[in-house]
Simulated scan of single mutants.
Amino acid sequence: MQVIDTAIPAVKRVIPKRHGDDRGWFSETFRADVLAQHGIDIAFVQDNQSFSKPAGTLRGLHFQLAPAAQTKLVRVLSGAILDVAVDLRRASPTFGRHVAVRLDAEGGEQLYVPAGFAHGFCTLVPDTMVAYKVDAYYSPAHDRALIWNDPEIGIDWPVSAEEAILSDKDKRAPRLADLGDVF
């Protein structure tokens, strides 16, 4: 398993090794000891999974406030996504910046998104299934969102505002400038 820094070093690409033969392949998708060697010592408590029928489904940008802030380890079980993490840590030199990584089932790469980041993704193909581990339970009282297409952040999404398939919550989310000091 490889753990590689992204343009924002707190966000990591996690690349499990695949062992293949004529039957297919086997992979360890999570190893606490390997992640700990890279400074990621997290006790995950909940696994989440989403299925998006159409391409262009956009989920996010979501986060939870402390004390229920969540660290996530995201992977794609089928299909492909553009996965995005936005730094909301006010004191961080990368505050307001984002990392965008293509994840797909074929490659098996994962994205580690620490607490203090908003997270979201856009499906690139139909019938995409995403799974992710979190280190804090879902808490409706702490659940928040950031608008997906905030021009201040400048994410190059693969869909336009007219094409994006969004929940009502995600359509109404505030801009970064209106969030206040969340982390």
Rank of each mutant, 00 (worst) to 15 (best):
I4H: 14
P9V: 00
A10N: 00
A10M: 07
V11L: 01
K12E: 07
P16R: 05
K17S: 10
K17I: 14
H19V: 12
D21W: 04
F30W: 15
V34T: 14
Q37N: 14
Q37C: 13
G39F: 02
I40R: 03
D47C: 07
A55D: 06
L58I: 04
R59C: 01
R59H: 07
G60D: 00
P67H: 07
K72Q: 10
V74D: 07
R75L: 07
G79E: 05
G79Q: 05
A80L: 00
I81D: 01
I81E: 04
L82C: 08
V84P: 05
A91W: 11
A91S: 08
P93N: 09
P93T: 09
T94Q: 09
G96A: 04
R102M: 13
G107L: 10
L111C: 03
C122N: 05
C122T: 12
T123M: 01
V125C: 12
M129R: 10
Y132E: 01
A136K: 12
R144D: 13
R144I: 12
I147V: 15
E152Y: 11
E152F: 07
E152D: 15
D156C: 13
V159E: 00
S160P: 02
K169M: 02
P174K: 04
L176P: 11
L176E: 03
D178R: 13
V182Q: 03
